[in-house]
Simulated scan of single mutants.
Amino acid sequence: MTPNKDVRADRRTAGDTRADARADADVAEIARLLPAPDRHPLPHAQHLHHKEQLMQHIDRELDRTDTPAQPARTAFSARRLLRPAILLPVTALALAGILTTSIVLTTGDDTTTTTTANRDVRPAAALLDQISDAAGKNEELTVRDDQFAYTRQKDQGADLTSGKAVMEPLKESESWVAQDPGPLRKLGIVKEDGETLPINAQLGDTEGTPEGFGRPTYHWLASLPTDPDKLLHFLYAKTPESDDQERDQAVFERIGGLLGGVTPPKAAAALYRAAAKIPGVTKAPAAHDAIGRHGVGIAREDTTFHTRTEWVFDRQDLTFLGSRSYLVKDTQYGKKGTLMSSEAILDFAVVDKAGQEPSRARES
């Protein structure tokens, strides 16, 4: 057993003291020579997105080389299958169905009220209560395993390959994601820039990707706990810890990743109330989406990597409009205020076949 400090002080000789000093100096010198830890200055999910983009480029190059007559393979955008990520990030929260009632709420500052007794009166929590109530009133859909979740959106993201954030052009895309529980090797298709590409299984899923966090089908979302406390505990337990992102921010973005396109009303309502319980969640009065639609917002800042993620909702019926992410402090990627990603949801529906467009279309 190692003696305590008092005993060591009594027994230690001058030679021992010099030896200890040399050892400490050696440790300090080794530490100085070692490279600094590689800390990625973006949230982990955003880093995964750019890794995914790189793999898509590699896949396309391989396809052009090996089978030029075939369409390029892709492992679809992080937005729908590896969400949250920088082009979404964080989070798409489009709600299924049409609201049956209109809700009036205060906007423009952080003062709001709620008529329901015993609710959290913090501004963000009160707003999320209203959004949850609206989501819970949406129509419950009947979705078959052979159907597809359709989403049309516009988005843009920052290219970081140069070491600086360079915003890519705003693009419109359509996706059809299979609702079969799987595991599936082909998850659907995506159409962008006049090109239709398959959505392949996630990297590493050699037997196919099952429904779950990486592929949230309507039925899987409906199976989540509807009690906000139990749901939040589940989300924290299922969100991997990482040095690359605040724990609370990772869960906040995971919620954003689960709420996209066609979402069961009870699941959406529970996820909003769970989000209200995450420390640091605030209102964002000046929030707007990728095409400039202004609304009421919910936001959270990652103080580790100085990014702010905002979810934007319509002022009248509280439907999800889009999201954006930007720097809140000067970093190596750009100045404070630099846009990192932006998204606008234009339409969503359930259709019978991949490639089929819904008859209903939202105003863009």
Rank of each mutant, 00 (worst) to 15 (best):
V7P: 04
V7A: 13
A9S: 00
A14R: 03
G15V: 12
D16C: 10
A21Y: 08
A21M: 09
D24T: 05
A25D: 07
D26S: 10
V27M: 06
A28Q: 04
A28D: 01
A28Y: 01
E29N: 11
L34I: 02
D38L: 04
D38E: 13
H40R: 09
P41I: 02
P41K: 00
P41Y: 02
P43D: 06
Q53D: 11
L54W: 09
I58H: 09
R60C: 13
D63E: 10
D66H: 14
Q70C: 07
Q70S: 11
P71H: 08
R79D: 01
R83Y: 02
I86S: 01
L87E: 04
T91F: 07
A96M: 06
A96N: 15
I98K: 14
T101D: 15
L105C: 06
T106Y: 11
T106C: 06
T106H: 12
T106V: 08
T111A: 03
N118K: 02
V121E: 10
A124M: 05
S132A: 10
A134M: 12
A134L: 03
A135D: 11
N138H: 13
E139M: 13
D145R: 07
D145A: 12
D146G: 09
Y150F: 15
R152W: 05
K154P: 04
D155Q: 15
G157R: 11
A158L: 05
L160N: 01
G163Q: 01
M167T: 03
E168C: 07
P169Q: 11
K171E: 03
E172V: 14
W176P: 07
D180H: 14
P183T: 07
P183F: 11
R185S: 04
K186C: 07
L187Q: 03
L187S: 03
G188E: 10
G188F: 11
I189W: 15
I189Y: 14
I189G: 03
K191T: 03
E192C: 10
L197A: 06
L197R: 08
G204F: 06
T206G: 10
T206K: 13
T206R: 14
E207S: 07
E211R: 06
W220D: 11
L221Y: 12
S223L: 10
S223A: 15
K230N: 13
K238A: 11
K238T: 15
K238M: 14
E241R: 14
F252L: 12
E253Y: 09
E253L: 13
I255D: 00
G256Q: 00
G261W: 03
V262H: 00
L271Y: 14
R273S: 04
G280Y: 08
G280T: 12
G280A: 06
V281S: 08
V281E: 00
T282W: 04
A284W: 01
A284T: 07
P285V: 14
G292S: 15
R293Y: 09
R293H: 12
V296S: 09
G297R: 02
I298N: 06
I298W: 04
I298K: 02
I298D: 01
D302T: 00
T303K: 08
T304P: 00
T309F: 10
W311I: 06
F313Q: 03
T319R: 10
L321C: 04
G322T: 00
R324T: 02
L327S: 01
K329C: 00
Q332G: 05
Q332W: 04
K336F: 01
E343Y: 14
A344I: 04
V350Q: 08
Q356D: 11
Q356A: 14
S359Y: 09
S359G: 11
R360N: 13
